[in-house]
Design a protein around this nucleic acid. Structure first.
Lengths: 206, 206
DNA sequence: ACCTGAACACCGTTCAAGT
DNA sequence: ACCTGAACACCGTTCAAGT
C-alpha cells in the first residue's frame, strides 16, 4: 500500500459514487484495509483532498505566454482544457477548484499576472484580468457540476454544455480585450480612487 | 414555534458559525427545543436550506428590463446587489447559489432570457448571455467565500474584493456587448454548427 | 514501519410515544 | 397538532495496541 494507491482509490470513488461517496471508510474498504490504515499515508481528509487536487491539476494545459498565437488563444486553450478535465469529475470540480493547491496558489497567481502583463495589461489590470478569467471558469465548473445531477434543472433548447463554455470563454476574452486599454474611470466610475495608480495600502483577495 | 423562526435560527447560525455550524441539532438548540422538533416544520436539511435560500433571495435587485438606463446598467445593478447580499453570508453564498430555488429556476432562466432578448440579443444568444452573467457572479461568490476563511490565500496588492467584482461585472458587460452583434463564426469558430440558427435536437444545461 | 480494534464525539434521520 | 426520547446508521478522528 502506498500514498499513490490511496489517492487513486479516492479518485475512483469520486468517479464512481460522486463526492459524497468519498469517505475515509470507503477508501479503506476499496483498498481492502481497515479505516485507520489510510491515516498512515494521509494526515486527514483535507490532506487526501489536497493530494487528489494535485494529481489532477497536472492534466491540463498550463497558462503560459503564447508563442505567436496571441494571449487570446493561449487563454482559450488553458481555460478550455481546465474545464474539460474538471467537468469530467462531476462534483469534484466544484470542490477541488476551491482547494488552495489547485486554484489560488501564490505560484498560480504570479504566473497568471505575468501572463497578462506580457499581454500588455498593466500590473493592476493584470491582477484583475487573471482573477476574472479564473473566476469565470470556476463558476462554469460549479454550475455544470450542479446541473449534472439535478433532474429539475431547466434545460435550455439546442445548447450543450460545450456551447456555454465556448461562448463564455469568448466573452471573457472580448471583455478583457475591451477593458485592457480602457481608463479606470470607464470601468470604475462609481468607485473613483478605489484602484490606486501606483502603490497602495490595503490588501484583498484574488 | 414556527417555520419562520426555524429559518431565522438557521440564518443566524450561518452568520455566527458559518456553514459547518448549521446542523439540525444546532438549530434545535438555538430554539431551545429537541432536535426532532425542527422536523415538524421542515422535511429535512435540504428543505431547510431551500427555505433559507428563498428568504435571502428576495433581498437583491431583480433583473428587469431597464427604464432608460440601458441593459448594461440594469445588469450591473442586479449583479452588484446579488454579490453584496450573498457575500455577506460567507460560505452560504457559494452553497446557496447552487440551490435550484435560488439560481437556475425555470422562472429565473425565462426572466433572464427575456431580459437579454429585450436588450437585442437573439434567442440563442440571450440564453448564452444570461448563463454567462449568472455563471460569473456564481464564481465570484464562490471564490470570495473561499478566500474569506483561508489565511494562506495569497493577497494581491492594493485591491479589495469590491474592486474585483466591479472589474468583473464591467468585463462581463463588455464581453456581452462585443458578442451580441458578432456572428457565431467569430466565437464558435472551432465548433462550427454547434449552435443551430433555428431549431435544434439536443438539450443542455444552463 | 505498517496496520488493527475499540472507542469518542459528532452527524441526519426514523419511529414510537407522549401531551 | 406539536413536541420528546431512544435508537440507527453513518461520519472523521484519537489512542493504544499489535506484528
Amino acid at each position: 500500500l502506498s500514498q499513490d494507491e490511496v489517492v487513486t482509490a479516492a479518485l475512483g470513488l469520486i468517479l464512481d459514487r460522486g463526492m459524497s461517496g468519498l469517505t475515509m471508510r470507503s477508501v479503506a474498504q476499496r483498498l481492502g484495509v481497515t479505516p485507520m490504515a489510510v491515516y498512515y499515508y494521509v494526515r486527514d481528509k483535507d490532506d487526501l483532498l489536497r493530494l487528489v487536487s494535485q494529481r489532477i491539476s497536472t492534466s491540463w494545459i498550463p497558462l503560459r505566454p503564447a508563442e505567436g498565437g496571441g494571449w487570446e488563444e493561449a487563454l482559450r486553450l488553458h481555460l478550455t482544457s481546465m474545464w474539460e478535465v474538471l467537468s469530467r469529475y462531476q462534483g469534484l470540480g466544484s470542490f477541488l477548484i476551491e482547494q488552495p493547491s489547485l486554484g489560488v496558489t501564490s505560484h498560480t497567481v504570479r504566473n497568471g499576472i505575468a501572463f497578462f502583463e506580457a499581454a500588455g495589461f498593466d500590473r493592476v489590470k493584470a491582477q484583475l484580468a487573471w482573477s476574472f478569467a479564473y473566476t469565470y471558469i470556476h463558476g462554469r465548473i460549479s454550475v455544470d457540476a450542479h446541473l449534472g445531477h439535478r433532474a429539475e434543472a431547466p434545460r435550455l433548447e439546442g445548447l450543450r454544455a460545450h456551447d456555454y463554455v465556448e461562448f463564455g470563454i469568448e466573452a471573457v476574452i472580448a471583455g478583457l480585450r475591451a477593458l485592457r486599454d480602457a481608463e479606470p474611470a470607464e470601468w470604475a466610475s462609481r468607485a473613483a480612487g478605489a484602484v490606486p495608480s501606483s502603490r497602495s495600502e490595503s490588501a484583498g483577495g484574488g
